[in-house]
Structures are given as structure tokens and as C-alpha cells.
Nucleic acid binder design. Structure first.
Length: 120
DNA sequence: AGTTTGACAGTAT
DNA sequence: GATACTGCCAAAC
């Protein structure tokens, strides 16, 4: 793949890798940080295409409502839930995370913001 | 080489 | 206020 960050997925990987321990973010936030708010779908698709050898904390990426959207991509939602709880993130029985507490906006990260400006 | 689908989100009715 | 439609880019078929 392109490690220079030319493709959308490459940039997504980079942003996901920056998610702080114990924090979570959303597809829309990442897409918006990259300058394409409408491309939220691509973010999810990019994560679905993660090679695997890349140690990306994909379990920290949730949908807009804090729901573990990609739970079944880990084999079972409970796996993702366990990963998050292990980081101190409280996950409800319905696999929902309180974004008001654990949400991390990529747009507020200087490194991510620099990446966005590089795109323009 | 063209078509279809995919971890979503925002707007439009 | 809730439901439906569109937009977006890349990868798999």
C-alpha cells in the first residue's frame, strides 16, 4: 500500500494509529479531519481493509452514536468491547460508548491537522 | 474495464 | 421529530 499518504485509506490508517490510549473516535470525525466529511463510509471500508500486520487500534473507531459498528469484524462485538474496557473505556451492555466522555477529535490533533493541510 | 458494495453521516422531505 | 435519500472513494467481483 501507499505509505506516503496519497490514498484516502493510507491517511485513515495514519489517523487511526494516532488515537490516544483510552480514547475513541468516530468515522465522521476522521473523515472530517481528512477534509472529506461525506467520506465517512470510506473510513470504515479502509479499516475493513487493514492488512493486519499493522497494529492499528481499530476497536477505538465507533460510529456516530458510539456504537461498536465493526464488532463482528473482530469475530464478535464482545472482543472489541473487552479491548475498550481494558483501556478504561466504559462500554454498555448494548455495546455503546459514551462519546461525551471518551470522544477524541482527530481535528484537534496538530499532527492530524497538518496532514489535512497537506492534502490541500 | 465496468459494476457493485461497503465498520457511515449529513441533509432533505 | 422521524424516515428516506444522496454523497463519497476505494477495493473486490
Amino acid at each position: 500500500m501507499d505509505t506516503t499518504g496519497t490514498t484516502f485509506t493510507a491517511r485513515v490508517y495514519r489517523v487511526v494509529a494516532m488515537i490516544p490510549y483510552g480514547k475513541v473516535t468516530t468515522f465522521g470525525a476522521i473523515a472530517r479531519a481528512l477534509g472529506s466529511p461525506k467520506s465517512a463510509r470510506m473510513v470504515g471500508f479502509a479499516l475493513a481493509s487493514i492488512p493486519g500486520h499493522l497494529d492499528l487500534p481499530a476497536h477505538r473507531v465507533l460510529n456516530r452514536y458510539g456504537f461498536l459498528s465493526g464488532g463482528w469484524h473482530f469475530g464478535h462485538p464482545d472482543i472489541m468491547k473487552a479491548e475498550l474496557e481494558d483501556e478504561g473505556v466504559v462500554v454498555s451492555g448494548d455495546y455503546i460508548v459514551d462519546l461525551g466522555v471518551y470522544f477524541w477529535d482527530p481535528g484537534m490533533d496538530p499532527e492530524v491537522d497538518a496532514l489535512r493541510e497537506a492534502h490541500y
